[in-house]
């Protein structure tokens, strides 16, 4: 399973998201290859899931991956809830 964490530049915000997504997936016992990137590179990359903000999700419509929207990147409970719903 491949998860992409996506932000505008691919260096700051998406890396924070990646750290917390990795923490949550570890807690859930889900093995996954998690990467971070910017929104324009993400369009050309394959993935099973893309985790990003509502703002950027609109630019990723049409991507074959399932899009998971997170509003609060520091809220591990929210990230867990959204990932669990997507994985179910």
């Amino acid at each position: 399973m491949k998860v992409l964490c996506v932000c505008g530049l691919g260096q700051g915000t998406s890396l924070i998201l990646r750290m917390n997504v990795e923490t949550v997936l570890r807690d859930l016992g889900v093995g996954a290859d998690v990467e971070h990137t910017d929104v324009s590179s993400a369009a050309g990359m394959s993935a099973d899931y893309i985790v990003t903000s509502n703002e950027l999700a609109q630019s990723l419509q049409g991507h074959s991956a399932q899009i998971v929207i997170v509003n609060n990147y520091f809220d591990l409970a929210e990230i867990k809830e959204r990932l669990q719903a997507a994985l179910a």
């Binding site: 505008g8 915000t13 924070i16 903000s53 520091f74």
Partner: peptide, 16 residues
């Protein structure tokens, strides 16, 4: 690119 870096309630992390 807009305000995507407002990554939690009341918190912005601008960067370049």
């Amino acid at each position: 690119k807009g305000p995507y870096f407002v990554l939690a309630p009341h918190i912005a992390l601008p960067h370049a």
